[in-house]
Computed example of a mutant assay.
Amino acid sequence: MFGLFAEVGARGPLIVGSDAAATARAILAEEPLFRAGIAADLAMLGCYVGVTALFLDVFRPVHAGVSRMAAAFSLIGIAVLAADTLLLLAPLRLLATAPYLSALGAPQREAAALLALKVHGDGYDVSLVFFGIYCVMLGWLAWRSGFLPKAIGGLMALAGVCYILNSVADLAAPAFAHTLSPHIMDPTLIGEAALALWLLVFGARGTPGRATRMPQAARQGHRA
């Protein structure tokens, strides 16, 4: 939710294609909204750290090695996106800070600000490659778990493939990326929503870890 607001609600209306001057005017006119998008990105990253730790614990009983590797890919993606967020501060400094106003002409500042925003988009794609791998691994773990429907595992794996395909195409083959369907990212929303809703409604009851811990606790209580 935070990420969707940042990308679609905050920055989406302000970045006017490749028009550097129009983008600069929009950012300056809606600076509080632009900064709110940055704050939403940070909130999203904090939530993803918590989700990564949660899923590491939930899926560890299914396969500890794969669960740890999935968490590692997730944390790398989070770190890349956290560093990438710094680029969003460049337009604000270039367009509204005194040293740059006097040192650079308006066209140069506006072009540099738009470049920072475009490179931020590239960094987002890099982070989604790692997050896509994370989703594929989560899908495999969910499929193998026995406490989640296999359909959710399949949807999460498909979501990961879509993340990877879309991001790699954007970075390595832009011409090919333009031929992809605009709906290629739909499975990512469906897969993640299905997993989140299932856990919200049913929780992680019946996980192998919980099943093995309960008898142990009972035995300890019996000995006491």
Rank of each mutant, 00 (worst) to 15 (best):
L195R: 09
G209M: 03
A43H: 03
L14V: 04
A20R: 09
D186M: 15
G50K: 09
D57Y: 08
L75C: 09
F73D: 00
S102Y: 13
A169I: 02
R60N: 08
Y124W: 04
A71Q: 11
G153A: 03
Y163K: 02
A98D: 15
R109V: 08
A113M: 10
P107F: 08
T188I: 15
L117H: 05
Y124P: 04
S181H: 08
D19R: 06
E31H: 00
L114Y: 04
V136Q: 01
G191R: 09
G221A: 14
S18A: 15
R219A: 13
R68G: 04
G9A: 06
A169S: 07
I184L: 15
A70N: 12
T23R: 05
R210L: 13
Q108R: 14
A196P: 03
E7A: 15
G77S: 08
W198G: 09
L117I: 12
D19V: 11
A71R: 00
I78Y: 04
F131I: 05
L155F: 13
D41R: 12
P99F: 02
V80Q: 01
L89I: 01
A72Y: 02
A79E: 08
G17I: 10
L56N: 13
L189A: 14
L115G: 03
I184G: 07
A194D: 10
T179Y: 01
F2L: 15
R93K: 15
A217R: 14
Y134C: 08
A40V: 11
P149A: 08
T85I: 08
G191L: 10
L101Y: 07
P215Q: 05
S181Q: 10
A173K: 05
T52V: 07
A36V: 02
E110M: 12
H120Y: 15
T207Q: 11
G139T: 05
L148V: 04
A40E: 00
L138A: 01
L158N: 03
A217S: 05
A96Y: 02
A26N: 14
G154C: 04
A142I: 05
A20E: 14
A6R: 11
S127N: 12
P99N: 07
A10T: 06
R205F: 00
V66P: 00
D122E: 11
I184E: 02
S67E: 10
L28C: 03
H222L: 13
